[in-house]
Amino acid sequence: MTPIRLKVAPPTDLIENLTGGTDPSIRAFLTAFTAHSWSQHYGISLRTLGTRSTGDLINRLGRNNCVTLGTKPRIGTIVGIAILRARLKNVDLGRITPWKNIARDNSPSARDYGVPFLIAQNDGDTIVAPATTKEFVRKLCRDGARLKSVSIQSAGGHPTSAADSAAETLEWIEARFQG
C-alpha cells in the first residue's frame, strides 16, 4: 500500500502562521505555546523575546493553560494573552536568532515527498493562516507533488476543519485504496 499524507489545516510555514493569523489574541497564545516548548526543547532563553516578566508570562501560558476551542478560557488566560499581545506586538520570531532558524527547521518543505497529499483548509481559519496554506499548496504543485486541495467554506473555522472535510477525506482515502 502506498503511504499517504493527510493534512487538515496544516501549520506549514510556522513563522507565517504565527505572524499571519487574523486574530491577534490567538497569535499571542500560539507564540507563547511555541516559544515555551522550543525554549524547553532547545534550551533557549525567553529573554530574547523581551523582559524577564514576558518570559515568565510565556512560561505560565505555555505550561498552565489549555484552551478548548469554542469554550471560554479562564480569566487568567484572557488577561495573560492581553498582556502578551501588547508585549509581543513588535516581536517577529522570523527575524530573531535562534527562533527563525528553529521555525525554518520545524516547518515542512514544500516538495514532492513521493506520496499523494490531501490538504484541507478552512478559508475562515483564524489559527492556521489560509493564505500560508494556499502558498504551500502552490509550491507543492510547482514541484510536481500529487495533491488534492480542499477549500472548506464553513463558519466553523479551524475547530471544525476535520469534520467539515470528512466526506471528501474519506472519498480521497478510498480512492487511494482503489489505486
Rank of each mutant, 00 (worst) to 15 (best):
D123I: 09
K89D: 05
F33V: 10
K7M: 15
A131F: 05
R5D: 13
P73H: 05
A28F: 01
A103W: 01
P3V: 03
T12Q: 04
I119M: 06
C66Q: 15
R63E: 15
T97V: 03
S154A: 11
S45N: 07
Y113E: 15
L14P: 02
I152H: 06
G157F: 07
T169I: 09
S25M: 08
C141G: 08
H158L: 09
E174S: 14
C141H: 13
L49E: 00
R104Y: 12
A32G: 08
P159I: 11
K134S: 12
I58W: 02
A110G: 00
A131K: 13
A32M: 10
P116W: 07
P11S: 11
T126A: 06
Y113P: 00
Q153V: 04
D125Y: 00
G179H: 13
S107L: 02
P108N: 07
C66T: 10
R111D: 06
G114F: 09
I75M: 12
D143P: 00
A82V: 03
G76S: 12
L88V: 00
M1H: 12
G50C: 01
A82P: 01
K148H: 11
G20S: 07
R104S: 09
R146S: 11
T19C: 00
A167M: 11
E168A: 14
P108Q: 07
L49Y: 02
R27C: 00
T2M: 13
T133A: 10
T22F: 00
F117A: 01
T169Q: 14
I75E: 11
R74V: 10
A162T: 15
V115N: 04
G124C: 05
T68A: 05
V8L: 15
R176L: 14
S165Q: 06
G70D: 06
E174P: 01
A32I: 08
F177K: 13
R142H: 12
T160N: 12
T2W: 10
T48M: 02
T133E: 01
